[in-house]
Amino acid sequence: MTLGVDGGVTAEQKRERWLERACDLSAVVGGLVLVAMAGMTVVSVVGRAFFSHPILGDVELVQLGCAVVVASFLPYTQFRRANLIVDFFTAHAAPGTQRMMDAFGTLLYTLSMALILWRVAVGAQAMHASQESSMLMELPLWWPYALMLPGLSLSVLIGLHQTAGLLRGTSPGAAS
């Protein structure tokens, strides 16, 4: 990282730190939802095995939860630049060339995630309008759609930040 002219922290670095905390928080929230899913499933299995009384709707809770977990995980993965690339063909390219290619790849990531964010938001609206619910527990389906939006939004922000950084020549969120 480079220091600003006044020896302090640049705006980009501040943004990076803010985004890092946000991604970290998002990953932890997703992790907690995952732990809750595991706990609920164990309660259901124990109930089924010993009391013939599982949680009716455990499967759909896992499905709904999985969507929220994954969306919450996505920004952290991109922040760590952990989304897979094939380095097979470009391993010997100049670092500057590689950086420009990465900027292009990150731009495509950003645009794709923005498209997905937009469409999932529209999906949430549609689910809200149609009042669709899960089969057994009758949980409104717009909830999991809506709970995907923070993670997807953060992914777009990370993508923007990293694309800008790569174009400018700084290397944000280098692989851990």
Binding site: D24, S26, A27, V28, G30, G31, L32, L34, V69, V70, S72, F73, L74, P75, Y76, T77, Q78, R80, A82, N83, L84, I116
Partner: peptide, 20 residues
């Protein structure tokens, strides 16, 4: 515990983005 969640997030996010 935090570190476990970060690892899980990083690898699961990578796999599911490929699925998408």
């Amino acid at each position: 515990l935090l570190s476990c969640m970060r690892t899980t997030a990083q690898t699961s996010g990578m796999i599911f983005l490929i699925f998408i």
